[in-house]
Design a protein around this nucleic acid. Structure first.
Lengths: 181, 181
DNA sequence: ACTTTATATATCGAAGTGATAGTATGCATC
DNA sequence: GATGCATACTATCACTTCGATATATAAAGT
């Protein structure tokens, strides 16, 4: 389940350009699988090279060709195989928690800013999920519903944890408490 | 807050070898910041090159020298600077959730195995945190307590979510329900 | 006697990150 | 009428990290 496979999976849903896929990585997939152009374009090239997708090049004047990718039968088969992997990973890479390990080397002001930014980021991601859910209404697959629900649960858990345990790191002043509520 | 910085941070707590740091990455840091030898050894070399750590080489017969690293004053200063970054990331990279997006392309048996493995992995990580907490008893910093607590909260949230929402993906048979309880 | 675990080093190809660059259209703001 | 910003699209590149593998010895379990 690398970027290549995820792109292939997205293409089971209909043809798309690299740009389209990037948008999906930025919206519905943002909270659990980020990918930039530096991964997506090479991935699509490799998939095309291996015959798992086909590419229609639509010429445009002045601009580089628009490249629309479509999954092939071989691609669908490959996807089926990829989905047989029994133990897909779930990894967290948190500079935030790493930094908190060294909280005793930081000032309260620094900690306060970092905690606030973390909560803000969580809220941004919650909004992304919410926007996705409202935009596709009832036509999401059960899988996507499961995934969105999982994202919301984890993000809420993080937010609540930070709120309820910040006292382990900072002594809340009355003004801060007031600002938080 | 890359591997280099985290290694430097670990060394604020006392001198260590690359192997020692790896153990820390595998135990207390495992649930939010993994790193292998392929990152740690180059990181230590770079830190030594930049004068942020010093290396004592202890010769050993037959084996390569044992290299014990100690942080320098410049290193401590560098760490202070690194901790001023106001918005450390917190990223999830989940093959698991990516796979669940394509659940409609999978069989129930496959899904069942994947869900079971996910729960097992969560439990393994919970045990790691628990083991760490009992091993260091009260001499953990508030920061480490915060981090362990956060890990436990997130992992419990994931486990509970999977348990309570598996019905979105699989129709639980009586036998499965019995096995789960 | 045999195997696993622990201590310790190190490298390398493959994969992914993040930033940057380029080009055109259209829309809003000044 | 110009300037800047958003959107649509492509693409590359240096750097970092990942995961697997290799090498060596000693202790400890079975």
């Amino acid at each position: 389940m690398d970027v290549k496979t995820v792109c292939l999976g997205m293409l089971t849903d209909g043809e798309a350009t690299g740009y389209d896929l990037k948008k999906q990585f930025e919206s519905s997939f943002a909270h659990f699988f980020a990918a930039g152009y530096g991964s997506i374009y090479p991935a699509l090239s490799a998939l095309a090279r291996d015959g798992l997708v086909e590419c229609r090049e639509i010429p445009q004047d002045g601009k580089p060709d628009r490249k629309v990718y479509r999954i092939t039968d071989a691609g669908r088969e490959h996807m089926q195989e990829a989905l047989k992997k029994p133990d897909p990973t779930h990894k967290v890479r948190s500079e935030f928690l790493a930094m908190m390990c060294f909280a005793h080397l930081m000032s309260e002001e620094q900690l306060d800013i970092v905690l606030a930014n973390r909560v803000a980021d969580v809220e941004r991601k919650l909004k992304l999920i919410h926007d996705y859910e409202t935009s596709c209404m009832q036509d999401a697959t059960p899988g996507m519903r499961f995934v969105c629900g999982c994202g919301k649960t984890m993000l809420h858990a993080m937010k609540e944890y930070v709120d309820q345990n910040r006292h382990l790191l900072v002594t809340d002043t009355p003004s801060r408490k007031a600002a938080a509520s």
